[in-house]
């Protein structure tokens, strides 16, 4: 394999890693609070606010039901406002985050709903405020499941990032399409696929390990 191709691979690997890492971080930052809000504003919970909950649920669902490639193109004006450009790796982070945050929010919502409500009640009986219940009860108790949810989100993002080539985001997926597919370079196709598989494996193993460490049940 020529020096050029190796450089291309390294560059693409970096682009994928950068896009996925940045959007995972941002998605976690927005997704976890969003998930918490979805739970605590639901019926009978500590900050019940049904109209708000319903509206938020609809927005989350709308985002989640739009296929990523369409979402990415559809929000180009928004991407331009946020990232200053609608083309390139940084620009790709915006749609990746917007697609992943609601996904993670639903995963976090499910994880927190699995926490026995009796524990919340016990904390209330001890005089805990809603903020304390979220920070000291709901999040720690749901943490093993949340970690698995973040893992799942990162893996989805690795998949989504393959489509980032559409708006010039680069990355391994883009490399595989442009060289492996369009230029019939089977070797590049195989290498990129192997690297993607390895990435997913590493992320999944790390996630499983961390969740296992946190789980005391």
């Amino acid at each position: 394999m020529s020096q050029d191709l190796i450089e291309l691979l390294v560059k693409s690997l970096w682009e994928t890693t950068y896009m996925v890492a940045a959007s995972s971080l941002l998605a976690t930052l927005f997704g976890i609070p969003l998930g918490v809000i979805l739970v605590v504003t639901d019926k009978g919970h500590i900050l019940e606010n049904l109209p708000f909950n319903r509206v938020l649920g609809i927005i989350v669902n709308a985002t989640r039901s739009t296929p990523f490639i369409i979402l990415m193109v559809a929000i180009i004006p928004l991407t331009r406002i946020i990232a200053g450009t609608s083309i390139g790796t940084n620009a790709a982070i915006v749609p990746l985050t917007i697609a992943a945050a609601p996904f993670l929010a639903r995963v976090v919502e499910t994880a927190i709903k699995e926490v026995d409500f009796g524990v919340v009640e016990a904390a209330k009986a001890m005089g805990a405020s809603p903020r304390e219940i979220i920070a000291k009860v709901l999040l720690p108790e749901a943490m093993p499941s949340i970690v698995l949810g973040v893992t799942l989100t990162i893996i989805s993002l690795i998949g989504y990032s393959a489509m980032a080539g559409t708006i010039g985001g680069g990355g391994l997926g883009d490399l595989a399409i442009r060289y492996g597919y369009q230029r019939f370079r089977a070797d590049i196709m195989i290498i990129t696929v192997l690297i993607l598989i390895a990435q997913v494996q590493i992320v999944q193993s790390l996630g499983d390990y961390l969740a296992g460490r946190l789980n005391k049940k």
């Binding site: 026995d116 524990v119 209330k124 005089g127 405020s129 720690p140 108790e141 943490m143 005391k216």
Partner: peptide
Amino acid sequence: DNKLREIRKKIGMIFQHFNLLSTR
């Protein structure tokens, strides 16, 4: 609410299913 929370700290409660925090 905020005053009620202070009062609750002086009212202990135990439960049928214990309701302990599993991660602590």
